[in-house]
């Protein structure tokens, strides 16, 4: 049994706008302002005890990003899904880290992939992509190949001009030769 529908509906009455049931899974949709309140209620309520934030992710809709929380009660083995729409005009959601520590990395990933900002997050940085990455890949407008042409790793800035010269090859010798002063050595063939 994944959930107790009547109990959930009774308990969550003050929080959700509407709910849906898809293939036996309960999904509650609530306003962004009520997220934190609802999460801490679910965590602390004695009958529900949703003590694990199982997942936190985003889903892009036409009007905004939908933030999706999957909560799990280890003791009762209940599962519940909470959703809230964050409109594109203000892509800010309250951070759940004050309630669930597990939200830390998930929120960083949501920020990384969707550009969704979380208020009061202790350390909102990119987590999977490099810090200087441009764009947020999981958004629908982000092309599969990325915005920019991908350069080969060995094409350093200094070597970019040399690379276009005919009949020349580049060999990165800085790693193997401790005596070389410049990063790159050009060897004519």
């Amino acid at each position: 049994m994944l959930h107790n529908k009547t109990l959930f509906l009774k308990k969550l009455k003050p929080f959700f706008d509407h709910y849906a049931e898809i293939r036996g899974q309960l999904i509650f949709v609530l306003d962004r302002s009520k997220i934190l309140e609802c999460l801490s209620f679910l965590k602390n309520d004695k009958d529900l005890k949703f003590n694990m934030l199982h997942d936190l992710t985003c889903n892009q809709k036409s009007k905004g990003l939908e933030i999706v929380y999957q909560l799990h009660s280890v003791d009762n083995s209940y599962w519940i899904t909470l959703k809230s729409l964050i409109p594109f005009e203000s892509l800010v959601a309250p951070s759940a880290t004050s309630v669930f520590v597990a939200a830390d990395w998930h929120e960083r990933e949501a920020f990384d992939m969707f550009g969704l900002k979380f208020t009061d997050h202790p350390d909102l940085r990119r987590i999977l992509l490099p810090d200087d990455w441009e764009g947020h890949p999981l958004k629908k407008e982000y092309p599969l190949g990325g915005f920019k042409d991908i350069k080969p790793i060995w094409a350093y800035e200094e070597a970019e001009d040399l690379q276009n010269l005919p009949d020349r090859n580049l060999l990165n010798s800085s790693i193997i030769d401790p005596d070389s002063d410049d990063k790159l050595k050009v060897i004519e063939s």
């Binding site: 293939r23 889903n59 999706v68 599962w79």
Partner: peptide, 30 residues
């Protein structure tokens, strides 16, 4: 529709959240 399903792997719970918009392609797989 959308489904969140969880299975047990050797390392723990692998949750998969899928959203389908009715086309041949997944709309979102998490």
């Amino acid at each position: 529709g959308e489904i969140y399903s969880v299975t047990d792997t050797p390392r723990g719970d692998l949750g998969v959240y899928i959203v389908s918009d009715g086309s041949r392609f997944p709309y979102r797989v998490r």
